[in-house]
């Protein structure tokens, strides 16, 4: 079914990975890719309802000064669209109810978690049950990590992927749940879509620097129960071509980078689905 796929990439207030995220969406085949400043949403010039695929890129929303993406989450929860007075969060809420796709990377993942739209257990969105906090090392780090994909996860983004090698670039990426019960539910429902692991993509690891931040259970990314909302700390948009790979000058690598599959899965899901 040849459906037009429309993607929105939100930027502004400190977001900084919008260009490469939009590029990845275009490479993945999205027909429309708009980089939209959150001010344009707040002024009612753009609306989420006009898109199928929402991308929340990395960056430092409001400087992460109250903790990563914390102020950004509160803006979405409480800001209203100028003139209409519509709460911005309703646009997000409707987007989720409509079964559309949201991908958050790094600061975008932090935003989804702090908004509580991930993991959104039992469909209870906008309630924070997990968090991403300071790396155990106490420092920002840029390094490439191996990710093991949970093949039983409902996550539509990771379908058909066994593992991925991607960079992390964050200071607050340590995943923690509010309590053990929540962590157990995440595992039971296979919402832990990607975990840090060794170079063989086999076992999840707590060993630094393979697990770069000390994330509990080596969690690198989670999805909701529909599999349509997905957030992860590593940057799939940073590996769309083999020259992004840190060892491309010494390894035989396919032309296409490993991060692109995540975007392709999303675009294909929309093209074949119907909302």
């Amino acid at each position: 079914m040849a459906k037009i796929v429309k993607t929105i990439v939100i930027t502004g207030k400190g977001t900084n990975c919008e260009m490469e995220m939009a590029h990845a969406c275009r490479l993945a085949g999205s027909d429309v890719v708009d980089i939209v400043n959150i001010s344009e949403l707040l002024y009612g010039e753009k609306r989420l309802a006009d898109y199928h695929f929402l991308n929340l890129p990395g960056g430092f929303l409001d400087g992460d000064d109250l903790g990563s993406a914390k102020a950004g989450a509160h803006r979405i929860m409480h800001a209203r669209v100028a003139v209409t007075g519509e709460p911005l969060y309703e646009q997000f809420s409707r987007f989720i109810q409509d079964g559309k796709l949201i991908l958050g990377v790094c600061n975008g993942f932090q935003l989804m978690v702090k908004l509580g739209i991930l993991p959104g257990l039992k469909g209870e969105y906008f309630k924070q049950t997990t968090t991403l906090t300071f790396n155990d090392s106490g420092r920002f780090e840029d390094r490439w990590v191996y990710l093991k994909v949970n093949d039983r996860s409902p996550c539509i983004y990771t379908k058909g992927i066994r593992g991925a090698y991607l960079p992390v670039r964050h200071g607050e990426g340590k995943f923690i749940t509010k309590n053990d019960t929540i962590m157990k539910q995440l595992h039971r429902k296979n919402l832990v879509a990607v975990q840090y692991c060794g170079s063989g993509y086999s076992e999840p690891t707590m060993e630094y620097p393979l697990n770069p931040n000390g994330a509990y259970d080596a969690v690198a990314g989670i999805c909701d129960e529909t599999g349509r909302l997905f957030g992860l700390m590593p940057h799939p948009e940073a590996y769309t071509h083999r020259t992004n790979h840190p060892r491309w000058t010494r390894e035989d690598l396919p032309e296409e980078g490993m991060g692109l599959a995540i975007f392709k899965n999303a675009v294909n899901f929309i093209r074949n689905g119907n909302f």
């Binding site: 900084n16 990975c17 260009m19 490469e20 590029h23 990845a24 990395g58 420092r139 920002f140 780090e141 840029d142 960079p167 670039r169 940057h235 948009e237 940073a238 769309t240 992004n244």
Partner: peptide, 8 residues
Amino acid sequence: QYDHEVQG
């Protein structure tokens, strides 16, 4: 500790 890859 420096992001050397942002902007892709």
